[in-house]
């Protein structure tokens, strides 16, 4: 897996760049959409939760934006990763290459976008309040989420070409996860069901982002390590599966 990715690092880099350029120049507002997308999502959630349901924690805007940006990175990566190998059908039928580079490119495109948006969000937060020293832990949270996201994304990308129905199931799972990860509400330790709620790795990740970015507390290092290791485990297993199926995908992709 590492070897394949290393050998094709140049291609992964150039292809990621190509996809980013395409994304940016495709629409008239280009790069602005990267920022508009989370802002519009936030406007919707804010409207629903504050004006319709009269809920919302203190400093709800910051709370929402952190959750939305991080969860969008996860959900769009997994969603597009699931269809990535099928979309590379034309390419696969003309040339042999390790298929793992296809979902990896999807992941690096989404990650680049996430990093840029996160920097903007952090600038926004630092204008509102003084930055906390705990912001130094942000890269650790990002890294943990990256591992987990990549692992889950590989599951989808490996299975969907063989069983296209899974793509539909993934949509429902992502939706359930969005509701269950606390993108727009907060469950605190001590509350009922907190332990069950936190079995969802994304819920734990979002909690850590808010701890370090908003509440000036250090993250739960154990959780971050466990989630990262889970991601590494999934990545290793799934990359092995994809390798096994390397010659099968060009036949079944549609």
């Amino acid at each position: 897996m590492i070897k394949d990715l290393y050998n094709y690092r140049g291609y992964i880099f150039y292809s990621t760049r190509a996809k980013l350029i395409t994304e940016v120049i495709q629409n008239h507002l280009g790069f602005l959409w990267w920022l508009l997308d989370p802002l519009l999502k936030m406007a919707v959630y804010y409207g629903v939760f504050v004006y319709l349901l009269h809920r919302g924690t203190e400093d709800f805007v910051s709370f929402l934006i952190v959750g939305i940006v991080a969860f969008t990175w996860f959900s769009t990566s997994v969603m597009q990763g699931a269809s990535s190998i099928n979309e590379a059908r034309g390419l696969m039928q003309q040339i042999h290459f390790p298929k793992i580079i296809v979902p990896t490119i999807t992941f690096s495109v989404k990650s680049f976008r996430f990093v840029i948006v996160t920097i903007v969000v952090m600038v926004f937060l630092s204008i509102k309040n003084e930055p906390f020293v705990t912001w130094f832990a942000v890269p650790a949270v990002v890294l943990s989420q990256a591992m987990f996201t990549y692992g889950v994304l590989l599951i989808g990308s490996a299975v969907v070409p063989l069983v296209p129905d899974v793509a539909i199931i993934i949509q429902y799972v992502l939706q359930a996860m969005m509701f269950g990860s606390g993108v727009f509400f907060r469950i605190q330790p001590g509350q009922a069901n907190y332990d069950i709620f936190m079995l969802n790795p994304m819920a734990k990740i979002l909690e850590q982002y808010r701890e370090v970015l908003l509440y000036n507390r250090w993250p739960n290092w154990n959780s971050l390590v466990i989630i990262a290791l889970l991601g590494v485990f999934l990545s290793v297993v799934m990359s092995y599966v994809i390798k096994k199926l390397d010659h099968c995908y060009p036949r079944v992709a549609r």
Binding site: S15, A18, K19, T22, I25, L91
Partner: peptide, 10 residues
């Protein structure tokens, strides 16, 4: 292969 993986915007 003609046009293997061309990125049209590049």
């Amino acid at each position: 292969a003609l046009q293997v993986g061309f990125a049209p915007e590049l």
